[in-house]
Write a protein that binds this DNA or RNA. Structure first.
Length: 575
RNA sequence: GCCCCGAUAGCUCAGGCGGAUAGAGCGACUGCCUCCUAAGCAGUAGGCCGCAGGUUCGAGUCCUGCUCGGGGCGCCA
């Protein structure tokens, strides 16, 4: 155990049991970081009423119980009953050495291995990813990486839009311009122009719109030429997505695409099952299910539309088929939907229906990891149709360009320069989106998102690069450093204490599916390191101090590089 | 009309299951490269935590009401 917070919790619980009886051993010890000591426990005040004794008296007894523990230097009661706890340097150093020797740096694998499906990114066939895709993509990927690091069995699922109404339109347009011209245009990555041309025709030419609708019916019936053109659109889109995901360091592969068409053969059966269970009724000519607790205008119950009055299927049915497949066929015990906030009600209805249908039972959970809405400069919603979307690829280019300007005169080798710019630009971009709570809505602001100073990705990368530089100068391999770590100065102590919180930061991130917690933790690590770096010379130190500081550097480097890799942020060797 | 989310420093945001003096970054201002990378460090200024009640020993945090903003509400996804 390297986590001081957990260790102190056990000590406090032990003291509670000793002083007040075993029934208090399970009480939350309420350990919090403190401005007055390393940690404080607020448990005395919370238990005072139950114990029928004044909180200060309770606190005194607990503090007395902590006395003499090897971990505890001092435990002092103050205020209404706070217990301020300062850890012993020797104990902290021992924990840090344990963390250094541990290949997982104190990150415990999950006690119970879960099968988790993470639905994220939300790409569409024949549409470029735009700036709004950044967060659901980057956040989802970080969640996946963290869960896998904890030993969970994770299935990535990008719900690829490849089967809806627009495809009749797109295929008909492809027929009009010819297969070769379509191929050429899409191979160049110019989906937006292709899509917009089709859309414009669809809206202005009734005959084309009519053909498009018939084409969709043929497609969904599996007519060969329609399928062939559809395949072309899908393949080109996949190639585009592969390239962009690779550049962004997103771990989604072709096999992780969970396209709508995949669920198409299941839709009739899903509906049959819901009808059989008495959950589906005909309403206004459409087959609907009305999960309890959802009402719309006029207080009428809200439906999920299982089959439209024209016999077609919409996305409600696809989502139900997907959740059934994930729970029943994949055997998932946790579902995480990394999806925009505007879909919240829809997803809650899907979850409720899955419960009613008996797919989502007590042993499994489904959660909506809400992604806030990105807006334009005026707080207005960005509209796809008017083309005011910023392409994700352009956003990446801009990020890399800005990073490149900073080092324009720094490295002679242009290849090295561009590699660093790429890593730093993408690091800035991803960290910018990962460091704020995913649910907060936000305005797309390049200066905000692509900043290179302060609490940014490059700050963390820079700390790692400085550490690497130390080892390079010393001609040492940081992986071979064994310490021991000894804690002398306040900066060394503060850094060690910060590093020991790594496991907690990772498990908190996994539990809440909130990568900004890990990002915030890593910033604190980098910040503690930078203070240490300013105050504690490493290479010019001598003897045990030098050994200890090198070890502290090595441990910091490992925590930073591991943490950044869990966020999906590249770590350049030099900056 | 109903439901969901939000409102914290000039700007962008953190704030665990209710704990002491509400924290970062950017921007502003003052200093710091003879010294392991200044994408950095040290410091200063900047707050009616939207408003009003309530619960509590204690509220940015929980409850109620209100104001403002965003989103959703049957055959688009």
């Amino acid at each position: 155990m390297t986590d001081p917070e957990a260790a102190l919790g056990l000590l406090v619980q032990h003291a509670l049991a000793e002083e007040f009886g075993g029934e208090f051993a399970a009480a939350d010890p309420l350990i919090r970081p403190s401005g007055f000591a390393d940690y404080q426990s607020n448990v005395a005040m919370s238990l005072a009423r139950r114990l029928g004794r004044p909180p200060r008296e309770v606190a005194d007894l607990i503090a007395k119980g902590l006395d003499g523990a090897s971990a505890v230097q001092t435990a002092e009661v103050s205020g209404p009953g706070f217990i301020n706890i300062t850890l012993r340097d020797s104990w902290l150093a021992e924990q840090a050495n344990g963390q250094l020797a541990d290949s997982r740096m104190g990150v415990a694998t999950a006690g119970q291995r879960q099968r988790v499906v993470v639905d994220y990114s939300g790409p569409n066939v024949a549409k470029e990813l735009h700036a709004g895709h950044l967060r659901p993509t980057v956040v989802g990927d970080a969640i996946v990486r963290v869960l896998e690091y904890l030993g969970h069995d994770v299935t990535r699922a990008a719900h690829l839009g490849d089967w809806g109404t627009p495809f009749g339109m797109l295929i008909e347009h492809a027929r009009d311009v010819g297969e070769q011209a379509t191929y050429d245009q899409l191979a160049a990555g110019d989906f937006t122009a292709f899509y917009q041309a089709a859309r414009a025709k669809f809206e202005t030419d009734p005959a084309f719109a009519d053909r498009s609708r018939r084409r969709l019916v043929e497609l969904q019936a599996g007519e060969p030429q329609s399928m062939q053109l559809w395949r072309l659109l899908v393949d080109d889109s996949m190639a585009y997505l592969r390239t962009l995901y690779a550049r962004l360091g997103i771990t989604l592969t072709d096999a992780d695409m969970a396209p709508e068409s995949f669920y198409h053969p299941m839709l009739a059966d899903v509906n049959a099952e819901l009808e059989e269970r008495g959950l589906a009724v005909i309403s206004d000519g459409a087959l609907c299910t009305f999960p309890p607790g959802f009402t719309g205008r006029d207080g009428r119950p809200l439906p999920l539309m299982l089959r439209k009055s024209d016999g077609g299927y919409g996305y409600d049915t696809t989502d139900l088929a997907a959740i059934r497949y994930r729970l029943r066929d994949l055997g998932a015990t946790r579902l995480i939907y990394v999806v925009g906030s505007e879909q919240h009600q829809h997803l809650e209805m899907v979850f409720e229906t899955a419960r009613q249908a008996g797919w989502l039972t007590g042993g499994a959970s489904a959660e909506h990891a809400v992604i806030g809405l990105m807006t334009g400069p005026g707080g207005q919603r960005l509209k796809t149709r008017s083309g005011e979307q910023v392409k994700l690829a352009d956003l990446i280019d801009e990020a890399v360009e800005r990073a490149g300007k900073v080092i324009a005169d720094r490295y002679d080798d242009p290849q090295q320069r561009s590699q660093i710019a790429e890593a730093v630009g993408i690091g800035a971009l991803k960290y910018g989106d990962l460091s704020v709570a995913r649910a907060s809505s936000y305005v797309l602001d390049f200066n905000q998102l692509l900043g290179l100073t302060g609490n940014t990705g490059p700050y963390l990368q820079y700390a790692a690069a400085r550490i690497r530089s130390i080892f390079q100068r010393a001609d040492l391999d940081p992986a071979r450093v064994t310490g021991p770590i000894q804690l002398g100065t306040p900066a060394e102590r503060a850094l060690a204490l910060q590093l020991l919180g790594f496991g907690r930061a990772v498990s908190d991130t996994a539990a809440t599916a909130e990568p900004h917690k890990l990002a915030g933790y890593l910033f604190d690590v980098a910040s503690a390191f930078t203070t240490f770096y300013e105050q504690c010379p490493v290479l010019t130190a001598e003897g045990e101090t030098r050994v200890s500081r090198l070890a502290l550097c090595a441990l910091t480097l490992r925590v930073l590089t591991t943490g950044l890799s869990l966020l999906g942020i590249p770590v350049p060797d030099r900056m």
